[in-house]
Simulated scan of single mutants.
Amino acid sequence: MEAECPHAGGPMADSHVDIEDSAYVVSCPWHAYDFNVETGESSVGIKACTFPVDASGESVLLQYPAENEGRIQLSKIEPVSEKAKLKHEQPSTQNPTPPQDPGAAHYLDQSATLCDWTVHILNTANPEHKIELTIYLFSTFTSRENTDSPMPLGRGTITPPANPPRENLTTVTPGTMPKSGRGGTLKSRIAMLHALANIELWAIDLAIDICVRFSTFHTNGNSQELPRAFFHDWLKVASDEAKHFSLLRARLEELGSSFGALPVHHSLWDSAIETAYDLRARISIIALVHEARGLDVNPMTIQKFRNAGDAESVKSLEVIHNDEITHVTTGHRWLTWICSQEGTDPVRVFRSNVQKHFRGPIRGPFNEEARLQAGMDRRYYESHEDGVPA
């Protein structure tokens, strides 16, 4: 979108983003003129210039009128690979019937609802099947979204499992996990990658679970239901997490190990159980505490692998880090949306949920730049003089 509001030249880069009828809308900070980010249309009759962008392979194509030639400048491009490393070929969205292989993942038919799919994925113990199904679900939901047969949501028609099953894993408590070391040895790097792969596997379930568990959520006061954009956003997060797991699993195998070779713990899912009663709490703890904490520690982890000369692992970890900024953005966006509907302050709602559901304060050091990119300024995590934990 053009940088200046067509009404009076207000800075659109500082605009507030909201969701209306499953469309993203930005409001100019000067006079609150609203614009659809895709079409540029406004409810007040004027229109902003929007520029279609197509990212395909190694190319990024930006369409703009010929008269703007010479006025368009490239600020920067940050590439993030969307390629997952799957072990089995996926069926296409046009031909979803896979080969009859008893070892293949089970794909639901075209009549399945979003909630049917999410519960099916949550109940899938095989990690390879889980990541295949998750990536396929996001692709299918997205491809059908602008057709005359979008995927039905199936709100409230099926119940998610209390604990998604796991396959062939040795489970221990967090306190008894072996130390991974500092990444200076191959054994240490394998341990670190294995621990991260376990986090990503649970992160798939967390993003999938939020779609089904809170599918019937309504805001307080105006009883607004969640728009379809909510489900699209969290399916994108789940698909990213599936990609992340595939990259880490592949790297473990390249280093001579495999996922499941070391013990794991399930403490991340414990936070999901703790917050299963309230969407505001779930977003606060999972997206804005755990995911945001990942933004803080990722650069240090990446540097350990870089110091060890492990360039291939660094590539995967950098993809994961850039994706996770957008995941925190997703959490921030939807907590803000809920609070705007309910007339509450998202910072206060967040901090209140941290007090209830997180033990102790959130401690630094903080990656302030990445957190700010995701929408979290210091009000969310700085300590208060009254002792309220961040």
Results as ranks from 00 to 15, higher is better:
Gly221Trp: 02
Asn222Val: 13
Asn222Ser: 12
Asn222Gln: 11
Asn222Lys: 13
Ser223Leu: 14
Ser223Trp: 12
Gln224Thr: 15
Gln224Met: 13
Leu226Met: 10
Leu226Ala: 04
Phe230Ser: 01
Phe231Asn: 01
His232Tyr: 03
Asp233Arg: 12
Asp233Gly: 09
Leu235Thr: 08
Lys236Asn: 13
Ser239Ile: 06
Asp240Arg: 06
Ala242Asn: 04
Lys243Cys: 02
Lys243Asn: 06
Lys243Ser: 01
Ser246Lys: 04
Ser246Leu: 06
Ser246Ala: 10
Leu248Ile: 10
Arg249Thr: 09
Arg251Phe: 02
Glu253Met: 11
Glu254Ser: 14
Glu254Asp: 15
Leu255Met: 12
Leu255Ile: 03
Leu255Asn: 03
Leu255Ala: 09
Ser257Glu: 13
Ser257Tyr: 07
Leu262Ser: 04
Val264Tyr: 07
Val264Ser: 08
His265Gly: 06
His265Ala: 11
Ser267Met: 12
Ser267Gln: 11
Leu268Thr: 12
Trp269Glu: 09
Asp270Phe: 02
Ser271Thr: 14
Ala272Ile: 03
Ala272Thr: 07
Thr275Gly: 14
Ala276Gln: 11
Tyr277Thr: 14
Asp278Ser: 11
Asp278Pro: 09
Asp278Thr: 09
Asp278His: 08
Asp278Tyr: 12
Arg280Gly: 02
Arg280Cys: 08
Ala281Lys: 10
Ile283Asp: 08
Ile283Trp: 03
Ser284Ile: 02
Ile286Ser: 00
Ile286Val: 15
Val289Ala: 09
His290Ser: 13
Ala292Asn: 13
Arg293Pro: 00
Arg293Val: 01
Asp296Ser: 07
Val297Tyr: 01
Val297Ser: 06
Thr301Cys: 10
Gln303Cys: 08
Gln303Phe: 08
Lys304Gln: 15
Phe305Ile: 06
Arg306Lys: 15
Arg306Trp: 08
Asn307Ile: 09
Ala308Asn: 05
Asp310Met: 14
Asp310Leu: 14
Glu312Gln: 15
Ser313Pro: 11
Val314Lys: 04
Ser316Asn: 10
Asn322Trp: 01
Asn322Cys: 11
Asp323Lys: 04
Asp323Ser: 06
Thr326Ser: 15
His327Thr: 03
Val328His: 03
Thr329Lys: 06
Thr330Tyr: 00
Thr330Val: 06
His332Asp: 10
Thr336His: 10
Trp337Glu: 02
Ile338Arg: 03
Ile338Trp: 02
Ile338His: 04
Cys339Arg: 07
Ser340Lys: 15
Ser340Arg: 12
Thr344Phe: 07
Thr344Met: 11
Asp345Asn: 15
Val347Ser: 10
Val347Pro: 04
Phe350Thr: 00
Phe350Arg: 02
Arg351Glu: 07
Arg351His: 08
Ser352Tyr: 07
Asn353Phe: 07
Asn353Arg: 06
Val354Met: 05
Val354Gly: 00
Gly360Ile: 14
Gly360Ala: 13
Gly360Met: 15
